[in-house]
């Protein structure tokens, strides 16, 4: 009993220390963001940020880009990872290594590579805003690769992909039916996790938006941070909130009625 009590005390101590480490700076930022009006607590910084048309424009832009990038990522990665699991399992380590590249190559190097390769003929993808949006979407897809691949990979491991596919085929399903009736529904949580993490990443991404000169939320936050004191703190809290909403959604959808058992066994 004595030993158990000792362990409990230390567990609580480290737990509280970790909470303080994470939440104290956040509390400081929150507190600071509420003190724009001298001598009183107010949401003035938030009102100023939300009333700024440039914020709304960059927020809208990043949301749209995030949704497009995430959708394309899902369309690209789910069939690819599925096919690797089913037909080319030896390629899985190669795929894993490739998807880690965005962690190894600095984004600044990557963005210069994009600009050098695609701004000139024959692509000329930086000539118009629309073309640049295509380039930035492709960039976001690459940056979200590690998260999207890993989420889908974990999902694929949790179900017996090969046997489920064969079971569906033996019942008369074609490839389309196998994917949409069996594989996608059983990867719902994994896809959603990858999608929401990737979305949060796109929402906060700075370098691609800045160097490709697009009105993304990341560059806007840096711009505001240069010229104002309280608004950047409000923006940081808004950004935190957005990430927490994404995490909350992942947790909410992970608790579906039949998602605890995804083994198919």
């Amino acid at each position: 009993m004595k030993k158990l009590f000792k362990i409990d005390v230390w567990a609580w101590f480290w737990g509280i220390l970790a909470l303080l480490y994470f939440f104290l700076p956040m509390y400081g930022t929150l507190d600071f963001s509420l003190r724009m009006q001298k001598g009183q607590i107010s949401f003035l910084a938030y009102q100023t940020v939300l009333a700024d048309p440039q914020f709304m424009e960059s927020f809208r832009y990043s949301v749209i880009m995030g949704l497009i990038s995430v959708s394309l990522s899902v369309i690209l990665f789910v069939p690819t990872v599925y096919w690797i699991y089913l037909k080319l399992p030896n390629l899985r380590p190669v795929m894993e290594a490739i998807t880690l590249l965005p962690f190894i190559i600095p984004v600044i190097v990557y963005v210069f590579g994009l600009i050098r390769t695609f701004s000139g003929p024959p692509f000329e993808l930086t000539l118009t805003p629309f073309k640049t949006d295509i380039l930035i979407t492709a960039g976001y897809i690459v940056l979200s690769m590690p998260f999207m691949f890993r989420a889908i990979d974990v999902g694929m491991r949790a179900i017996d992909v090969r046997t489920l596919t064969e079971a569906a085929q033996s019942l008369g399903s074609n490839w389309f039916q196998v994917l949409f009736d069996v594989i996608f529904p059983n990867l719902r949580v994994a896809i959603l996790s990858g999608a929401l993490i990737s979305f949060a990443l796109v929402m906060g991404e700075l370098i691609l938006g800045d160097f490709l000169v697009r009105p993304a939320l990341g560059p806007y936050m840096v711009l505001v941070g240069r010229d104002h004191a309280y608004e950047p703190a409000a923006l940081a809290i808004i950004s935190y909130a957005l990430t927490w909403v994404c995490l909350g959604l992942i947790m909410y959808f992970s608790r579906g009625k039949n998602t605890q058992q995804l083994t198919g066994r």
């Binding site: 017996d160 489920l164 085929q169 008369g172 198919g264």
Partner: peptide, 19 residues
């Protein structure tokens, strides 16, 4: 191909669709 054979298969791991 297997989906055109009309052959039923039962697997060791049951392979029921969890969804």
């Amino acid at each position: 191909p297997p989906n055109k054979r009309n052959v039923g298969m039962v697997f060791q791991s049951y392979a029921l669709f969890p969804n």
